[in-house]
Structure formats: structure tokens, C-alpha cells
Design a protein around this nucleic acid. Structure first.
Lengths: 200, 200, 200, 200
DNA sequence: CGTTAACCGAGACGGTACGTCGCGTCTTACT
DNA sequence: AGTAAGACGCGACGTACCGTCTCGGTTAACG
């Protein structure tokens, strides 16, 4: 399920790895990430806070980045894809829910980590991004597709493009425009414009 | 004009700070930023490369972040606002030029640093962002406004919204979708959709 | 036994400190002390020469002084207390042997360090001095006592006083009169005078 | 008179050196020497305390050692050579007065500095020592000589030797035995023994 | 009696070393 | 074989001083 871990023990001889230790490390990582930020975060700090030896961390993850990415997995936002009466409403619910889940220190840290690691072009985060972003694009695309005829949308336009526009806009708001005053209005207007652009 | 520096000497007594040293530090920072990335970048490295004492760096900037932000100031992209025949073409030229300037290691580092510092909610980077992002929004808005009647755009929609959508989309492509195969197509289609959304 | 060390690990958990590292540090300290002198001696230098991390030094000693005192422990001179036919000869052998052991760069460094630290009135060096000086006084006193009747020495005089006079004289020669031309003569005459002073 | 200074200006054109600055530096040096010790003493500290630029210090002295030696000149002890009724009393007065002048932080610092610089075999302090120590030896020798017949001292013995024994003993007490409980007794007994050693 | 050369304070400069922190590895005894 | 503890070599941190070098400003003697 998760490929950031170091490879599992080849044999299952000897004492098995403690699941409690695993959880303690991940929990400590998230808490400290929120409290001190990724810059000041250190493995020694995590080990101490989790009441764990450094060895137990390095046995499971190769470095800080891998651990952080793994820890952030736990808080990845769920897309709320409940279909409403109109495309507008449906996308708004989805965007608003997504925004709500990310609009906090941890969520922003997550995006930030993503961007930093991506710009370092590590394979880990590419995989991470593909796993999380692509499905979102597809889900949104299928929502739009579902309302296509009902709302009289053009066949010509690339539906994935609209998804990217929406995702890009929401991401942009999160990264650069928070705290935002008229968030709801911004989201609604943006979605409206995109939908209108899809029409005819 | 730039507020990342430590406070200027209160008086003008004593030997004045060398402008040459200042430049050497900033230049070395940019070069090393490109070569080793921000993670591996160290003050000692910069000092050595610039042929400068560490003190001369710490005298001017409080930490690596402030220095990097300052160095990146020098390579902020210029918006190409030459008006073409149509809004579509004009925005495409603008977006394509912007993209071209940012689609390289240094440009991506710049965005990445921006995001990281913003997520740490430092005042430095908020100021930085406002100084660079807001003008862009205004410039794009005025372009759209210029073509409003000519292209039959609706009065109702918020023109700044369209700018944000465009900026968000381009930023999103830069951060998460590079290297991109069909960049031109993506940009063109995105702009087309946004313009279409503005119509009627 | 030696109290210059930082406190021993409270428990015996964790990896124990390496005895080899300990030795390497002390050896390097002595060698470099001889080569460059205590003024130019630096912790970084010692660490490098010993092939050891600076932390491993600071883990064991709080500062350069403590380390140097500890290193010098190893070369403390042995008193040659072989009894000769006369008090004069016995004391001469002793003084000459002591002088020979101290009359070199390391020996003088040792005395110098002792004086410097004593003038800073650190407890470390008081302890150090008491441990090394007092026994010497006692040994010399017992030698004098041994020859008391045989040589017709007065009962009235403080024998420890004669020891201190001798030690003081030898130390004085070492600190302020080296290199000395007529060392043997100086020692012999001094001892003769002291013995004569003890008589009647 | 004092050769630790850098050479005087070759010409006497231009603004002459300020005597007040000179005094301030020496005073500050002595005060700080007492307060923080020679180890922690720094040129920058002295400059700041004296309200003087570093340049003004380096213009007069080549390094910390030269400055300190120069500053300590001011407090060199005066020998009290008032002749008493007996040699015993005269030497006691002299030793007691000398001891009284040196038995304080500054005096001990002075001896310590002397020892340290001597062990580093700098020329400065050799000169310093010769200038101060030799005259003392000569003065004491002439005192002893003065009482020679009166007290029935042997001609055979080297009188300079007795001086060195006394100086050595007093120095030894100062360096290694302070604070001393029975100082007066120690001095008296020591002198008595030496005088007795000179007899017959 | 104005020129001018050396002085003065302040403080920037390239360095060296400081003592600390965290890295990722290793070595203990214990589970 | 896993675990907590913690030592290990290493590299960078940010600071303190070193001795040198500008700055603007000042003080006398010389010309």
C-alpha cells in the first residue's frame, strides 16, 4: 500500500517489528510537524518525542523526507463527491470540502512539502503526486462528464483541462491567498466561470 | 525598497559596507542555488564561493531564507504585455513568456522557496508575494479589460477572478506538471476556456 | 581517581565510550602541545590529529584547560628516592633526576599550565597540585628525617620547610633560569646551603 | 625606558598621539585583567572599555601580550630595602613587603603571565624578567653582604645563591601555596634557615 | 594661517576557532 | 532480530576575536 518504507525483513525470523513503535513515530512526526515546521523538524527530535530509538526510525525510513511524506499520507484529504442537483453545486461542495480539509497548518505543510520535494525532483514525491493528483483529476472529470448533456456543455473542450483549471485555482488559493476573506465567493465565482467556459 | 536586509547602520560612522561584497554574495547564492539546490546550500559554501567571510553574510541577512529570497529578487520574471490582435493571442504570449522564464531550475526553486516560506507564514514572504503577484494580477486584468467590448465579454464577471484563474493555472502547471509535453496546447486551451467563460 | 573528566554516564546504557578514542585524544594533545605550544593549540586541531570528532572531545572534557591538565598527568615526573651515602648526595640525585625530567618543552609547559590554572584559582588545579606536590614534600621530608641523626641536624627546625625550600628553588630554576649553564653546581650549592642551615 | 611600544613616529608631523588614550588603554587593561583574567581578555573588550578604537591599540602595541606586559609594568613591586638591626629582620621586612604587594589577583596574574610567556620563550618577557629579577637578586645580595661580617657568615658560599633561594622560596609560596595560613611564620623560618646555612 | 599628515572613533573585512546540533552509522545490554 | 540508549565521525551552524582596512572627522606643527 505504501512504498516509502524500507523493504520488509526478508525472513520473518527474530522479533517482529513493533506496530506500536511505528505508530508512535508517525504520530510524533505529525505533531511536531505542526508545532515546529518541517525546517526545524529533526529525526532526533522525533525519536525523543516518540520515546523511540533513532535506529527504529532509520530501520523503517531512509530519511526525513520519506518519513514526513509517509506521515502526511494519513491526513490526505478525501474528495467529497456527493452529486448535487447542478454541476455548479456539486463542484462547489467538492471544492469547499477539499479546501476545508487543507486550510490548516498541517494541510499547508503538506502542500509545501510536496512542492519542495517536487522541485528537488525526487522520485518519491513524483509517485506521491501521481497517486493523489491524478485520481482527483479523474474524479472531477467524471463529475463534469456526468452533467455534460444536462447542462449543455460543449463536446469540443477537454474535460481534463477544466479539472486542472479547478485544481490549479484551488491550490493557488491555498498556497498564496490564505487566509482568504471571501473564500466562498471566490470558489463559487471561479467554478461558475469555468462552467460557463465549458458551455455552448 | 527591499526589507529583507538587516537594519541599515544607524549612523554612517565607521567603514561603510562594501557594495561589491553584497553583489558577490547574491551572485554566489544564485549560482550555488542552481547547482546544488536549496537543501544542500549552506552559508559556509556561499561565503567560500563568494570569497567572503561568514560574518559579512550574517551582517546583512539573518538566515539562509532571507538571503535566498533576496537573491531570487534579481531573477523575477518580467511580464510580456505586448498587445496582440486578440485577447487569446495576447494572453497566450504573456503566459508563454512567463512560463519560459520560470521553466528552469532557478525558476522552480523560486516558486518552491516562495511556497515554503509562505507556509511558514513569515512576513517577509508575504510582502514578497504581494509585491510580485498583485501587480501581475492587475496587469492581466487591465489586458482583459482592454479587450472587453471588442470581444464581447460580460460585464458581470469579476475580471480579477479571471486573472487569478490564469495565474493559478500557470503556477499549477509549473509546480506540478513539469516537464510538460503539450505545454503550448495546454496553455492555449486553458486561456480559451477562460475567455469563453467570460463571454456573453 | 581523576576528576577532570565530565561525569561518567549515569547508567551503563547505550554504547560505551571508546577507550581507544580517549587515548588518541590524550596522545594527540601531548604531541601537539610539544609541537605548537598551548597558545596555538586548538580543539579542532586535536580532533583532526586524533582522527576524532570534536564532539568526542567535548563529551569528555569541558574545555581545553581540563584536557591539557589531564594529558599532562601522564608525564608527571617520578621522584628518584634511592638513598645514597650522604643526605647531600641523596638530595642531589633526587633533584637532578627531577630536573632532568622537567627540563624539556613538555615539562615546562606542564609547570606553566599549572601556574596559569592556579592563578585562575580553579579547583581542578588545586587538587592537581595537592596530589602531586604534597607527596613530594613528604618524600623529601622523610629522606631528611632519615639522615637527621647521622648528619647531626637540629631537631628544632621544621623539616617540611627545608623540603619547600628545595622544591621552591628547583621550581624557580626551571621556570625562570633555564637554560642554565651551571645547573649541577647550582643544585649542589643550594642543597649544601640548605643542609648546612639545618645543622647544629 | 619601555621597549614594548611600537617605534615612535619617525617624524613629528601630524597630530600627536594622545596621552589620555594611552592611559585609558593601560588602565582598562589592568582593570579587565583583574576582572576577567588574561584568558578571557580581548583587545576588542579593552577598546570598548577604554572608549577607544582598536586601531589606537594596535598603533601602540603589536599584540595582547605586549600590551599586558606593559600594563603590568605599572604594578611591579618595589623592594623595601630599609636596613634593620639584623639580617633576619631586614630580609623579613623585605620579603613580607614583597609578598604583600604580590599577594592579590593582579600580582598573581603578573607572575602567571611571566611564567606563560617565558615558557613560550618570547624575547619580550625574557627582557622583562631580566630587568626585574636581576636587580632584585643584586639588591638582596648586597643586603646580605652588608651584614656578612656582623653576623659571621662564611665567605665561601655564593651570596647570589642565597638570594635565589630566597626569591625562589617566596615565588614558590606565591604561586603554589596561597592563600597561606602561617605566612609570617613560613617566611621567618625560611629566612632563618637560609641565614643559618650561610653561617660558619 | 591655511595645508597637510598623522591621529581618532567606529566598524566592515577575510579569517580561524569556538562550542552546539543534527546527520546517519555503530555498538552496547536487554527483550 | 528488534529495541532504547547513546557514542561515533562528520559537517554546518551562528558567534567571538583576530589583525587589517577604510570611512568622516580632528588636531597640531610646518611652510
Amino acid at each position: 500500500m505504501n512504498s516509502n518504507h524500507k523493504k520488509d525483513s526478508s525472513t520473518n525470523r527474530g522479533r517482529p517489528r513493533s506496530e506500536a513503535v511505528h505508530r508512535n513515530i508517525l504520530d510524533a512526526t505529525l505533531i511536531l510537524l505542526t508545532e515546529v515546521g518541517i525546517e526545524k523538524l529533526s529525526i532526533e527530535m522525533i525519536a525523543q518525542y516518540a520515546g523511540v530509538g533513532k535506529t527504529s526510525i532509520y530501520r523503517r525510513w531512509t530519511n526525513k523526507e520519506a518519513l514526513v511524506v509517509d506521515a502526511l499520507e494519513q491526513i490526505k484529504p478525501e474528495l467529497n463527491t456527493s452529486y448535487q442537483d447542478t454541476l455548479q453545486e456539486t463542484l462547489y461542495e467538492l471544492a469547499e470540502s477539499f479546501f476545508g480539509q487543507m486550510d490548516n497548518p498541517l494541510g499547508r505543510q503538506m502542500l509545501s512539502v510536496l512542492v519542495s520535494t517536487l522541485s528537488g525532483s525526487s522520485q518519491i514525491s513524483e509517485a506521491f503526486w501521481e497517486k493523489h493528483s491524478l485520481p482527483k483529476t479523474k474524479e472531477i472529470s467524471s463529475i463534469i462528464d456526468y452533467f455534460r448533456q444536462e447542462e449543455g456543455l460543449s463536446d469540443r473542450v477537454d474535460i481534463d483541462l477544466a479539472s486542472d483549471l479547478l485544481i490549479g485555482y484551488v491550490t493557488y488559493l491555498l498556497l498564496f491567498k490564505t487566509p482568504s476573506r471571501d473564500l466562498d465567493t471566490s470558489l463559487k465565482s471561479g467554478i461558475e466561470l469555468i462552467i460557463n467556459g465549458l458551455k455552448k
